[in-house]
Amino acid sequence: MSATTTRPASPAPAVALKRTATGEHPAIKWLLIGVSVVFMVLFLIIPLVAVFFEALKKGVDVYFAALAEPDALAAIKLTLLVAGIAVPVNLVFGVAASWAIAKFDFRGKSLLITLIDLPFSVSPIVAGLIYVLLFGAQGWFGPWLQANDVKVIFAVPGIVLATIFVTFPFVARELIPLMETQGNEEEEAALVLGATGWQTFWKVTLPNIKWGLLYGVILCNARAMGEFGAVSVVSGHIRGQTNTMPLHVEILYNEYQFAAAFAVASLLALLALVTLGLKSFIEWKTRHEHAVLPLEAPRQT
């Protein structure tokens, strides 16, 4: 941004020069665009369209009947419940972690960042398995849980735990770079003016990171609602009780109830589209704000 203002006024024809000297031949340009469009349509657009097409193939009545079925409703409720627990829990963690990492210097910081990212590199199946090893009938806490009549595996707590694991890094990894670039000056100013730590956080830090926070929450939520592998290991697939929406899709599909499977899948596809829409909106919004507000400009709160 600043480079354009500091650079001495360059003659206007430079723009015209760029087009010829460092642009591709139009034929190559349109070939590359064509390849990209075909690749994206083939791998992304057609599968997405197919979900809605298959869902509505047998008519709107079949579609809504599949969604209104008790097992489907139970799956939708469970999915909302699981995301409703996993997302806020990871949100609190993400804010705490990014506060510690972005605002302070300490040894082992990069190791800590790597460890926070770890759940992204672990296969979802392994993520589910490790909770079975801890809380399953043969697990470390299995006998104790059985003696106290607490069910974690093949029950809702296990599903929540597995979901928290796979969505663990989302908010933190969105916030850490954002807070690092924002620095500490505004918080320090607030403290000098007599604000308490919490006041500083709520009135200074939070407004500054709100878009990044929302961005992380949206991605976290999409994964929490859509997680399949990890949840399928710990769920036990009990219809109406421990089936989330993706697991319900699997069961319907394996029972050859394709229209119903795609109907439930279309809800998840809609969720994906809403997620992408919100994501684009936030990206546009933050770019917009950056363009209008230089970093030093006073912020209206």
Partner: peptide, 13 residues
Amino acid sequence: LPFALPTAVAGIA
């Protein structure tokens, strides 16, 4: 899209 679309949905599609 592949980040946002649940893997099971991608799988059956």
